[in-house]
Amino acid sequence: MGNRRKSRELAMQALFSIDMSPNGSKDVLERFCDNFTPSSKTLSFFLKLVHGVLHTRTEIDAVIARYSNNWKLNRMSCVDRNIMRVAVYELLCCQDIPHKVSINEAIDIGKKFGTEESGAFINGILDSIRRALENKDVDVKINFSPNTVE
């Protein structure tokens, strides 16, 4: 497994933990890292993804909600929701990663950690977002630079 794939998997798991915690605090991320320590090869990208999603979650969730017909975000499985958050962060903020790579990674992670339907569900929503981005139909203002993360 590649380092970026491992970073994405760990990011989804950390975001899942934060999502499931009653207060969603930074302490949850610290405890996660204490128990599932990212390797030196995965740490940087892992932190970029987690902090990026946490700082832009409102914008990311709005994009997912807009393109998930008949699905409210809080009714999606926590695994699927956080896989898509990572992928949408990549689509919006990681210009060095081709959109298809982000989507394919999300689908594969969904198949590994989600249900039988997760891959198709994630693909449908992310592909709609990708098309909208390529057609410039998504106007999202992200005021976050991964270089400013503490």
Score class of each variant (00 low, 15 high):
residue 137 D to W: 08
residue 119 G to D: 09
residue 19 D to S: 06
residue 135 N to Y: 10
residue 60 I to Y: 08
residue 145 S to Q: 12
residue 121 F to S: 08
residue 33 C to I: 15
residue 15 L to Y: 00
residue 102 S to H: 05
residue 133 L to F: 00
residue 95 Q to F: 07
residue 68 S to I: 06
residue 130 R to Q: 12
residue 93 C to W: 01
residue 17 S to K: 05
residue 90 E to L: 10
residue 104 N to K: 07
residue 97 I to H: 07
residue 15 L to G: 02
residue 122 I to T: 01
residue 81 R to E: 08
residue 19 D to Y: 03
residue 150 E to Y: 09
residue 112 K to T: 14
residue 64 I to V: 11
residue 41 K to A: 14
residue 128 S to L: 12
residue 145 S to M: 06
residue 107 I to D: 05
residue 71 W to Y: 15
residue 20 M to Q: 09
residue 12 M to H: 07
residue 117 E to H: 08
residue 14 A to C: 13
residue 81 R to I: 07
residue 137 D to C: 10
residue 113 F to D: 01
residue 144 F to R: 02
residue 103 I to W: 00
residue 99 H to F: 11
residue 37 T to L: 13
residue 140 V to Q: 10
residue 100 K to N: 13
residue 113 F to R: 03
residue 51 H to G: 11
residue 5 R to I: 13
residue 30 E to S: 08
residue 149 V to F: 12
residue 31 R to M: 13
residue 87 A to F: 03
residue 114 G to Y: 02
residue 96 D to P: 12
residue 91 L to M: 07
residue 2 G to C: 14
residue 6 K to V: 12
residue 52 G to N: 03
residue 58 T to Q: 14
residue 21 S to L: 00
residue 24 G to H: 07
residue 130 R to S: 13
residue 90 E to R: 10
residue 127 D to N: 15
residue 6 K to Y: 02
residue 20 M to C: 07
residue 142 I to E: 01
residue 17 S to H: 03
residue 143 N to S: 10
residue 12 M to N: 07
residue 132 A to C: 03
residue 139 D to F: 05
residue 121 F to L: 10
residue 109 I to R: 04
residue 139 D to Q: 10
residue 18 I to G: 01
residue 11 A to L: 01
residue 17 S to I: 00
residue 99 H to P: 04
residue 84 M to S: 00
residue 98 P to T: 12
residue 146 P to N: 02
residue 30 E to M: 08
residue 107 I to Q: 08
residue 25 S to R: 02
residue 79 V to Q: 06
residue 65 A to E: 09
residue 108 D to R: 15
residue 26 K to P: 05
residue 123 N to W: 09
residue 20 M to Y: 04
residue 113 F to W: 07
residue 91 L to Y: 06
residue 38 P to N: 04
residue 94 C to F: 13
residue 44 S to C: 12
residue 147 N to T: 15
residue 94 C to E: 15
residue 53 V to P: 01
residue 134 E to P: 03
residue 117 E to K: 11
residue 74 N to V: 14
residue 27 D to F: 10
residue 76 M to D: 05
residue 149 V to N: 12
residue 45 F to I: 12
residue 124 G to V: 01
